[in-house]
Design a binder for these strands. Sequence first.
DNA 1: GTTTGTGCAAATGTTTTGCACAGGC
DNA 2: GCCTGTGCAAAACATTTGCACAAAC
Lengths: 145, 145
Amino acid sequence: MDSDKSHIDETTPRTHPRARRRTRQRSVIQRVLLEANRPLTPQDILLAAQARAPGLGIATVYRTIHTMMTEGTLVAVGIPGEAARYETAGKEHHHHFQCRECDGVFDIQGCPTDDLVKLAPKGFRLESHQVVLYGVCPPCTGMPA
Amino acid sequence: MDSDKSHIDETTPRTHPRARRRTRQRSVIQRVLLEANRPLTPQDILLAAQARAPGLGIATVYRTIHTMMTEGTLVAVGIPGEAARYETAGKEHHHHFQCRECDGVFDIQGCPTDDLVKLAPKGFRLESHQVVLYGVCPPCTGMPA
DNA sequence: GTTTGTGCAAATGTTTTGCACAGGC
DNA sequence: GCCTGTGCAAAACATTTGCACAAAC
């Protein structure tokens, strides 16, 4: 659906059927994650990445996720009972809102860090935290987005 | 590849090969959930329930989880990248702490509700929320529990 | 040359579903 | 009798891993 060279530098020399696109798929995945302004599931990432690099496999998505999480450049966002979603860690510290109507996840600003720190019981070393708000997003309440 | 009766003594009245334990397994599962004072994974629930009702199947665990979530008597606790954990909803409102060393999840008391309410952007209808703190638990820091 | 990243497919793990049947009504 | 809950097994879906080989160095 897109001629590779159109927007992917990827310097693809296009030699054999399957001899190409051997350049860092990771960069493709990173771009997808950077451009999304909300957490994505592995499947979301796969689909978006395949649009840019056809043939990219799900294994590469998972491997890249793990690599980036280890590096600390990606964070997992937990949504109860659902597949994990991931987003780049570079962003300003923030939290999420999930709409129970459309299941969409939105970034929200602000964080009562000081209040959360007080929650950690004695003896527990607090390193990070996550807040998820649930409710209904503007479109789903009938309001304009 | 095992003769059923060979090792399932388990107080099995042993009438027919599989004519027994036909009573509400759900009550067994509910008891397990009530007695646990922390969120459990479906596998945790299965093991604990099987100790009380041998032969109870994983499908029953999942079906009961769904039923109870629909009723609102069970809530899912989201831990990024891991299997969902569940706990009874009746408890006092609280949140969780997960140790990154042992992966254990602990209940913690207190909740800065008022501060969290302020986080919801205009137009978003806030219905509930969840806070997860991450760090290291006392045993894993070398301190006595 | 060696090392690394990748696609593919198989393996593993998790959750859901179809079905037959026991128990409660 | 009918309805519901259940065990079992298979299916569906999610995630990880082994392997061969191309690309990068």
